[in-house]
Amino acid sequence: MDGYLWYIAQVDRLNPDNQVSPAEAEFMVRAGKIAKKVGGSILDLGSGSGNDFPTIQAAEVILPVLAVEPNRFTWAKAEAQAQELKLSVSFAANLEEATNARKR
Rank of each mutant, 00 (worst) to 15 (best):
N94M: 06
I8W: 11
A76Y: 01
A92F: 13
Y4H: 10
L45I: 15
T99W: 12
V65E: 09
M28Q: 13
G46E: 07
V20T: 14
Q19K: 15
V61E: 07
I42Y: 01
E79P: 00
R102E: 10
A80R: 09
P70N: 11
S90R: 14
A35G: 00
G3D: 15
E79W: 02
L85E: 00
R72E: 10
G3N: 15
N51R: 14
M1A: 14
A93T: 13
I56C: 00
R13Y: 02
G3T: 13
Y4V: 02
Q83P: 00
R30G: 04
W75E: 08
K103V: 07
G50R: 12
L45M: 08
N15Q: 03
N71I: 07
E69P: 10
R72G: 00
D17I: 00
W6A: 05
F91N: 02
A59R: 07
I62N: 14
A78T: 05
Y4C: 01
N71G: 00
Q57V: 03
D44Y: 07
Q19H: 08
P22R: 10
A78G: 15
S41Y: 13
R102K: 09
G46Q: 08
G32P: 05
K86P: 00
S49A: 12
L45C: 05
Y4M: 06
P22D: 14
A78P: 04
P54H: 07
N15K: 06
Y7Q: 06
I34M: 07
D17F: 07
G3E: 15
E79N: 11
L5T: 12
V65F: 11
N18L: 12
E26K: 13
S90M: 09
D2R: 13
L45R: 04
V68T: 09
